[in-house]
Amino acid sequence: GEKLNSVASKYTVSDTQTTFQKATNWNNFYEFGTDKTDPAHNAHTLHTRPWTVELSGLVKKKQTVGVDDLLKYRPIESRVYRHRCVEAWSMVIPWDGYSLSELINFAEPLPSAKYVQFISKVDRSQMPELPSGYDWPYSEGLRMDEAMNPLTLLTFGCYGEVLPNQNGAPVRVVIPWKYGFKSAKSIVKIVFTDKQPKTLWNEINSSEYGFYSNVNPQVDHPRWSQGHERRIDTGFLPRTIPTQMFNGYADQVASMYTGMDLKKNY
C-alpha cells in the first residue's frame, strides 16, 4: 500500500513482530465474513475515499472531519503494540497513528461526557458478505479516561503503510491492553455519551464479551482459558506463551482500575 511518513515512538515493545503477511490475512472483521481469512479476500470492495468521521453527542459543536485532514492533524507515530484477541491468539504489530486524545481534545466534549462510542461503517453494497444476525453497525466503546490514555491510538496505518482494508481502513482505534474486538475498525462516527454505550459483542453475549474486556489471564473466557495465548509472529506454528495482565501494559493502565473488581467488571 501507500507509504506513510511516521516517526518512531517510545510506545514500542521489543517482542518479535508478526509478519505483514500473517497480520493482513488473519482478521476478525465480520462485515466481510466470519472466517478469519474472509476479510483479506473480501474487503477490497470497501471504498475508503471519500471518508468522513462524525464527532457528535455531548460535544461543544457537532462536526464532520475528512480522514485526510485527520491524517495531517498530528505527526504520525509508528508504535509497536501487542495485540491480543479474545480467542487466545496474539500478534505484535507496528501501527501508525497518534493518540486518540488529540482528536478528543479537538472534538471538545462537554464535562458531562463520560464515555466514547465508536461506530464502524456498514454498507451492504460494499459488504456483500455482511452476515445477518448481528446488530450492525459495529459499535464499541471506552470510558473517557481509557479513551484519553496516551496508549489508545487513532490508527491510519500499519507496517509503515496505509491500513489494508481488512485491517480497518482508513481509520480505526487500537487499544493494546484490551481484547482485540474493542479496537473498532473503519470508524465513521465517534459519539460522546454520559451513559455506557451499547457495544455489539457485549449485546450478543455479555458473559463472553464484557464491556471492559481488559486482557486478564485470571478471568477465563467461558470456552477457553485466558492464561495463555498463541503468539503468531514469524514461525510456522504459533508459540504458546503466558498472557500478561493488561497485555503487559499494567504500568500505563492499571491505575485507571484501582478499586474495581476486575472479575466482575471483565
Binding site: 508478526t18 503477511q21 500473517k22 497480520a23 490475512n25 488473519w26 478469519k36 481469512t37 491468539w89 498463541r230 503468531i232 510456522f236 506454528l237 504459533p238
Partner: peptide, 10 residues
Amino acid sequence: ALALDADPVS
C-alpha cells in the same frame, strides 16, 4: 501453502 496461513494449527 500451509505456512502462509497465519495460524496453520487452526
